[in-house]
Structures are given as C-alpha cells and as structure tokens.
Design a protein around this nucleic acid. Sequence first.
DNA 1: TTGAAAGCGCTACCAG
DNA 2: CTGGTAGCGCTTTCAA
Lengths: 351, 351
Amino acid sequence: MARRRERAPRQADVARLAGVSQSAVSRVIASDAESARIPEETRRRILQAVKELGYVPNPSARSLRKKRNKLLGVHTFEPVFPHARESFYFEFLLGIEERAEELGYDLVLFTSTGTSDGRRRVYRDGVNRLNLADGSVLLGALTDKNDLARLWDEGYPFVHIGRREVPGAEIPCIVPDYFGVTGDIVEMLARHGHRHLTYLHGTLGMEAYEDRRRGYVDAVRKLGLEDRSSAGSALSEDKTSLLASWLDELAAGPVTAVVAESEPLAEMLLAGLDARELRVPDDVSVVVLEAVGPEARQRWHALHIPRKEIGRMAIDALVELVDDPEGQGASVVVPCSIVEGATVAAARERR
Amino acid sequence: MARRRERAPRQADVARLAGVSQSAVSRVIASDAESARIPEETRRRILQAVKELGYVPNPSARSLRKKRNKLLGVHTFEPVFPHARESFYFEFLLGIEERAEELGYDLVLFTSTGTSDGRRRVYRDGVNRLNLADGSVLLGALTDKNDLARLWDEGYPFVHIGRREVPGAEIPCIVPDYFGVTGDIVEMLARHGHRHLTYLHGTLGMEAYEDRRRGYVDAVRKLGLEDRSSAGSALSEDKTSLLASWLDELAAGPVTAVVAESEPLAEMLLAGLDARELRVPDDVSVVVLEAVGPEARQRWHALHIPRKEIGRMAIDALVELVDDPEGQGASVVVPCSIVEGATVAAARERR
DNA sequence: TTGAAAGCGCTACCAG
DNA sequence: CTGGTAGCGCTTTCAA
C-alpha cells in the first residue's frame, strides 16, 4: 500500500534528483512550452524527476511572486449564493461560471464574509478577502458603497453587475439597458393604442429603479402619451396590497396600461383590479419590469434581462481589467428585450 | 477625486508609519486578539497606521507561510456546476456552501479543469490545482480513480461524496446508506403484500449501484421473497426503451413490484406497462431509487437522499481532516429515507 | 516588550 | 544555455 507523503516535494527536491539547479526546474515547469531555451535532454530529466516525485507547484508561492492566481472572485452582498435557485442572481452566476471556465479561471465564492445582520461586507476586521482573487465580480441589491469606494481606491480590479454610482470613483458596471428597454415597452404599449399609462413602483432609490423610471418618463413624453402616475407609492402600509384609493382612481380613470416595477406588485394589481371587476388584459394591460421565475415567462408581458449573458460579459470585462495593468475599465450597457406574455392587449375604452 | 493607489501597502509601510518594526505589526495584525503581549499604546499606533494606509494582509503570502488558506475546494468530475439546477449534484452544493459559510471558509469552484472530452481531471499538465485550497470536496459519477489515488498518495486532504473504492487508498467518503434504505424499500413492499419483485437496472458498475443492488438482494432473501430480476440489462440497444421480451415477461409473470434504479428507467417501464394495459400502481407497484427533480417528489415512491445534509457533512469531515494533521478521515454513512409517491399499492393478483 | 532575521516555494534577473 | 541570487509579503523564532 502506498504511503502518504509527509511533505509535498518542492522544486528544490526535483532539482536535486535531476541534478540541475532549482531555477532550471522553474523554467521547465513554468515557462510556456518551448520558449525556455532548455536542451531536450535536461528537460526530459527534469520532467522525469517531477513525475517521480509527484511534484506540483505551490499556487500560493506562485501567486506571491507573480501576483496572479487564475482565480476570479464572486462576492454577493446578500447571502444568496447558489442558495436560491429562484434568485434573481442565479442566472448571472451561471454565465459567470460558464465564461470563467472557458477562459481557464477558477472561481472563488466569497461566502465567508457573511455577517449576522444578513448583509455581506467585503472588509471584515479590516481584511479584504477579495485580494485572494485576481479580481472579482460583485453583485447584489444591498451593495455597500463604502466597500465599493474603498475597493476602487485600493485599485483592486472588480466589476459590478448593475449600475452603481459612487462619488469620486468610476465603478466599472455591467448594466442592463433599463432606460432603453423601458422606452421600448412604452412604445409597444403605444402601438397597442394605449395613451394613458401609469407606472406602479415600490420604493424608489436604487440606480436600476431610476433608470427604468427615466426610460418610462422619457418615452411617455416623446410619444406624447399621458402619464398618470401618482407621486407617492401605491403600496399600502403593510406592503401586502395596493392602496384602495390608488386602485379606485385607476379603475375610474382613463388609464389602460400599467407598467409595474416587480412581479409582486403586478400580482397585487391583479387582485385589486379583479375586485373591481376589471380584467387583464382586456380592460387593463400590464407589463412587469422585474419578473424572475421561469413560470413567469408565459404569464406576463415582461422585461427580459439577459442575465446569463451579463454574467459572461462581467467575466470578460473583469479579465480585461485584470490583464491590462492600466486599464480604466469602462462600464458596458447590455440591451434587454421584451418577452410576450398574456397581459397586453389593444387599448379599449372603458366606461 | 480619490486617486487610486498604485501599490498595495505592506506591513513594512505600516511599520514605518507607526515607527515600529515590521514584526510588531505582524503580531498586532495576525495574533488572535490580546494574546500578543503588546502595550496598548503601541497597538493603537499600529492600528491607526493600518487604517490610514488602508492596509490589508496579502492572503497568498500569508498562506505561503501558514500553509492555510481558509479556502475549501469543490471539484466535480463532470462539468455540471451550478449549471444544471436540476442536476443530481446541485443540492449537495447547497449544503456545501451553507456549511462552509458557517465555518468561515470560502469556496473555490474548480471549473478551470474542464477538458475537451467532457471530463474533468484534477491534474492538468501535471499541475494539481486543488492544492490551492486547504482541502477539497470531490463529487461526480465519472470520478477518475487515478486522480483519487494520486491525491490520496500526496496526502492532500479531501473527501468524496459517494462511495469510491481505490485499492491501496482509504478514500474518506460521505456515502448515502443505499444498502440500508434499499432494504427498507423491499420491506415496505413486502408489507404491502408483494412477494415477487424485480430489480430494474441500467448499467451496473459503480459503487452506488452495487450498494443498492446488495441491499435489495439481501432484503429479498431475508424476507423470503422471490427475486425475478433477469441477469442482463432490460434496456434496449438504443437505451431509449425497455426490451419487449423483458416487458412481456414482466406482464406475464407473477411480479407485482419493480424497484427501478432511475427515473428514466421507471419512465420507460411505465410506457411499456401502459402498452400492455397494466396500470401503476394498481397492477404493478414501482419504487424509484434515483429521482431528481422536485416534481418527482409527488409522483414516485422513491428513495430520498438527504443531499443538502450530505453536503454539510462533507464540509465537516473535510474541515476535520484539514485541521487534524494526522487524522485518518473515516468514511461516514448517512441514512436515507423513503418518500411516498403514488406508485405503490397493495399487491393484487394478476391473471 | 520589541526587533532582526530566517525562511515559506516560487520566478526572474543577471552573470557566466 | 544555465546557475546563483534576490526578493514577493508574511509569520515566527530567537536575542536583545
């Protein structure tokens, strides 16, 4: 029976066995193929010794020297790792993993950074674990902007999925073209004859919400439509339903199409309309901006974010950043599309 | 606007700024809390400098010294990473990730090792990437036993999910108690009055299959039942259906219950029985040993593997191995259960 | 209590 | 073409 080795062999051991210097070993091991001008004979002797000893390079030592790991990090600001298959983020990860594999990188899931408060910080006891990887992809709704600023300040290569503005820093982001596609949605609605629209939102604040809102407002104006959105939120206090007043106004008014920020909101809308004997899409058309589950695909007219593709692009952008010492790392905007569901129909006069 | 730093600060920089020696810095930074006997004053000065410079320790250097990374690897022998949500392996990963996070470890997904032939090897050009992590969890049906042997031989800490026998090595495995639960299944069938059973399998060979098969055979014998399994495979040449001869024999014979190795096999069985006007479970009861999707839960009587729990246990076992220098790392057997579906009923005489 | 110094295993530079 | 050598940034004796 084989005996387990007590200590991993080092280049020095190989060198001794092969009767060459350690640096010769290094050159044979590390240099790309034939580029190292080493006589075939020496080369063979070294390789032979390597095999005999079962030598494998020590990655830590290597990266200490070369400052490269072939390791890319993934950090989510919420504790939603593979966890939630239904998660908004899952598909991004698929793309990330796929592309990383294609490019020969391994992935580090930074999961250790979880804190008790349900958020994840990059810095823990002042230690930035991310440094372990050559660069990282960050994502999550609860992005900590201080972390982002600090990371950027350190010159650590990273990209963020989703737009994040941090004063004094230029965060390279991979961002869905919310502005554009929301405009497309409004236009599509206009083509269906809708002239009076309203925008149903939860809490505004994040950049993504802003982009969508701007796209909506902009298109409505450009197309000469009428926006009947109310100023405040339509959500009830407990956030489980929509305000009766809001729904009543919708039921009474001229609005024939609603652009809903999220699926839950749209769901509440449906319930509210139902109670008022209004049907979707016959009486009111609905488009959802953030639908997640696969079963949502058939149901709602919705904004489709090419998540997997975005994950892939994040890796591409990151690798570029990692490879290019001086690169600035511009943000990239990714086009989105509209998926057809069963919630948009031609506008019809209501009484 | 903040300027990005060109070079990350090192302990030497901190030391200079604080007016102390580098080793003092190291002691303050690395030593667990108060254990380093350092005057409060000095300590504060150092911490102050750390903050000012935004110093963060370099993980590679650290692990080169300490030979510890707080990094655990995951290596799948097939290219099925988060990829397949429906994958048999997905749930294991959930548990692995969860437990690793709890223990403060980060995870490395070894995705870079993919080869063109669709298999993943641990060693690529003789380099063992796994060394990057303190230890690794391996899984996958296509386990390469040479890799396993070599890894074990090197003394690299790892555990394998699923039993794997390698001559000359004692691979620490986390294994579902297939033997036991298959016995339970047979017993359950017996309680329902079934006396004549058959075992429907694909290609035998892997350890898991053996265990299940043994559990079945053993229980059948113990309970005095009759096993009508045929010697060869019941699969047709193209593997998309069952052999007509096999099905005819089943339809004719006294067998009232089938233990099917996998869901696809059970599916084919259903089709074949249907064509012969036999109903499940009225005429024939069916239990599936390897059902994956969540929708399978309601449908089949099946063997349930607590995958997530196994993932967690794998991490526990691995960490133990990593922590204990001399540990042997025994295998652990995890109990499985039977989930009730709609495919088992009391045995009924057929004509 | 603190600092000097010796490496961890590797790569890369510079002589020969 | 090859070997010696100087570190990468950190931890850890060992003396002072």
